[in-house]
Simulated scan of single mutants.
Amino acid sequence: MSEVLIRRADKADLAAIVAMLADDALGRARENASVPLAQAYQDAFAAIDGNPNHFLAVMTDGAEVIGTLQISFIPGLSLQGAWRGQIEAVRVKASHIGYKLDL
């Protein structure tokens, strides 16, 4: 294993992210990881990347994308105007599930 890093996703990571989203029982039925990617994925990435209240992360092992998640920050009136974070689309590449990482 190379150096494992977590960073903001960029457009070049999109195909790897969609492939991870499609690589489970639910994803196989609802995602389309064929290349070139559907325009809807590109539009969604642009919307996420362009909004400071959203953060799409990838975990990399060297140049390989091995994990992803999205966190959205949501303002609320409850708790005196507290912000919440919603984490979703957490995936790890199947070949790396169960690996012990030294972070």
Rank of each mutant, 00 (worst) to 15 (best):
S2W: 03
S2C: 05
L5A: 09
I6K: 03
I6Q: 08
R7C: 03
R7Q: 07
R7P: 00
R7H: 03
R8F: 08
D10A: 03
K11M: 14
A12E: 12
D13E: 06
L14N: 01
L14Q: 07
A16W: 04
A16V: 01
A19N: 02
A19Q: 10
A19C: 08
A19P: 00
M20K: 02
A25E: 13
L26E: 05
G27N: 01
G27C: 06
A29F: 02
R30I: 15
N32A: 06
N32E: 09
A33R: 01
S34I: 15
V35K: 10
P36N: 14
P36D: 12
L37G: 02
A38C: 12
A38P: 08
A40Y: 13
A40R: 15
Y41N: 10
Q42I: 11
Q42T: 14
Q42F: 08
D43Q: 15
A44L: 02
F45S: 01
A46H: 00
A46V: 07
A47H: 10
I48F: 06
I48E: 02
D49N: 09
G50P: 04
G50W: 06
N51M: 05
N51E: 11
P52M: 07
N53Q: 12
N53K: 06
N53M: 13
N53A: 15
H54G: 08
H54D: 07
H54R: 13
F55L: 14
F55G: 05
F55P: 02
L56E: 02
L56S: 04
A57L: 11
A57N: 07
V58I: 05
V58N: 06
T60A: 14
A63H: 09
A63N: 08
E64K: 06
E64W: 02
E64Q: 13
V65D: 00
I66D: 00
I66Y: 03
I66S: 00
G67M: 13
G67N: 01
L69K: 05
L69E: 02
L69M: 11
L69F: 12
Q70Y: 03
Q70S: 01
Q70C: 10
Q70L: 13
I71E: 04
I71A: 06
S72Y: 01
F73W: 07
I74L: 10
G76V: 05
G76F: 11
G76A: 13
S78G: 06
S78P: 04
L79M: 10
L79N: 09
Q80L: 07
G81M: 12
A82Y: 03
W83R: 14
W83M: 14
W83Y: 08
R84Y: 14
R84F: 15
R84N: 13
G85S: 04
G85C: 04
Q86P: 00
Q86F: 07
I87L: 14
I87M: 15
I87H: 02
E88Q: 13
V90R: 03
V90Y: 06
R91G: 06
K93N: 05
K93S: 06
K93T: 03
A94Q: 12
A94F: 02
H96L: 07
H96P: 02
I97R: 15
Y99Q: 06
L101I: 14
D102F: 12
